[in-house]
Amino acid sequence: MTISWLQAALLGLFACLASMPGMGGTTIGNYTLGRPLVGGLVCGLILGDLKTGIMCGVAMQLVYIALVTPGGTVSADVRAVSYIGIPLAMVAVHAQGLVATSAGAANLAKSMGTLVGTIGTVLFYGTATLNLVWQHMGWTAVEKGNFKKLYQVDWGWPWLSHLVFSFLPTLIMCKLGASAVTALKIALPMDGIPMKTLFTVGALLPCVGIAILLKQIVTSVLDFVPFFVGFTLAASLQLNLVACAVISLIFALLFYEGDMAKLAKAAGGLATTDFDDEDEEDI
């Protein structure tokens, strides 16, 4: 499998749209096109192998299931994960002669994509820094009362940041990376220690993504209970995800009713004195 200049350019365009901060906007860009699952679909269509694209996207999505960027700090860059990592992973899967739906293909994709995604963090800081130039133009316009120019600053000029930090890196890395990845096959045999390690790392990596998510929802040890109930339903009872989601609804409902009953009881005993953040706002 090779990547042509045109294909690489198309991937570059999607990288511009999908980044955080990207030209597709947050909802459509970052949270839709930037998700590896959707990236897998797009890369599969562009490179003409939908199945491998989707499977690489699924594998990568597990690593980045929780791409939360609290306070604007990033540990990986979605444009690099989805539009450099996935295409190169697809090429690698083909070069190694793996079946697209096999566990080996998924693990290779995870290692490859995560490596590229981590390096891609540079692109995030590059874009955000170059945007300062346009913002400076924006401040000058605001001082002069020339407000219409804000639209150019917010929607137009950042395209230039993306030309430099999304389009060109994607174009070059996809085009040149493809031959490098193919050459890897000859350099590193699949049953050697480096490749075995690479595949094993791929299997372990999603644990980090899931742990990041747990960090968001677990504040006390008891918060692990829903996680392990879901885990057990799937691992021991072999239920699929939709079934687990439906079962979780009844627990959510019970908790909600319980909390509301507590509130009603509290409201009966006390007058409504529980708006503690209202006080803060009045000061």
């Binding site: 299931i65 899931i210 879901g230 885990f231 339903l233 239920l239 995800l241 989601a245 079962i247 979780s248």
Partner: peptide, 8 residues
């Protein structure tokens, strides 16, 4: 929490 557990 439950869905993430099942995904894992």
């Amino acid at each position: 929490g439950m869905v993430i557990g099942a995904v894992a």
